[in-house]
Computed example of a mutant assay.
Amino acid sequence: MTAPHWIIHLPTTLTSQDAATGLAAALRDSLAHVTAFDFGETTLSEEDSQHLRHRVWCDARLDDGRRCGLREGHPGPCGALPTR
């Protein structure tokens, strides 16, 4: 049996889903080197509706084993974000 993974719920003072998505992208970009984070599984929810979550990233598997780094519901084919 594997140990359970933990979720960090980080409330913000942001008042729009677009602003929260932008913050999630900034956090992913600045903390991508920290292997403890799985940014592909990032979800957002309103403060009083935490049971209703919105995926931020598509996260579909690509042919090379990586995951799609584009926003959920993106137009066109999936693709990974460029590596730094």
Rank of each mutant, 00 (worst) to 15 (best):
T42Q: 05
G40E: 10
L52M: 11
R55P: 08
S16M: 00
P11Q: 05
G73S: 12
D38I: 03
R28V: 06
L27M: 12
R66Q: 13
L10E: 15
T83L: 01
D29Y: 08
P4Q: 11
A20Q: 09
L70T: 04
H51P: 04
L70S: 09
L62Q: 00
G65A: 04
A19H: 13
F37T: 03
G40R: 06
L52W: 08
T21G: 13
R67T: 03
R66V: 06
L14D: 12
R84I: 06
H51V: 10
A25N: 06
L70N: 00
E46M: 09
H33V: 07
C58L: 02
A32L: 11
P77G: 13
T2C: 08
R53W: 03
H51R: 12
D64T: 04
C68R: 02
R71G: 15
T35H: 04
D18Y: 10
D64I: 04
A20P: 10
D48W: 03
A3W: 05
G69V: 03
F37R: 03
L44H: 08
S30R: 06
Q17R: 15
A80H: 10
H5A: 15
D48K: 10
T42D: 11
R67F: 00
T2W: 06
W57M: 07
L10V: 13
I7A: 07
L44Q: 02
P75S: 15
D59Q: 06
H5D: 14
A26F: 09
C58Y: 00
E47K: 11
D63A: 10
F39Y: 08
D59C: 09
V34H: 12
L62C: 03
D63N: 06
R84K: 05
L14V: 14
E47R: 12
A80D: 09
T2E: 10
F37K: 02
D59G: 03
T21Q: 13
D64Y: 08
E46H: 13
T2H: 08
I7M: 08
S45E: 05
L27P: 06
P77W: 02
Q50N: 12
A80P: 01
A24Y: 06
C78G: 08
G69I: 03
A80R: 04
T15M: 02
R53I: 02
H74P: 09
S16G: 10
E41Q: 14
T35S: 11
H9L: 11
E46Q: 13
P82Q: 02
L31A: 01
S30D: 07
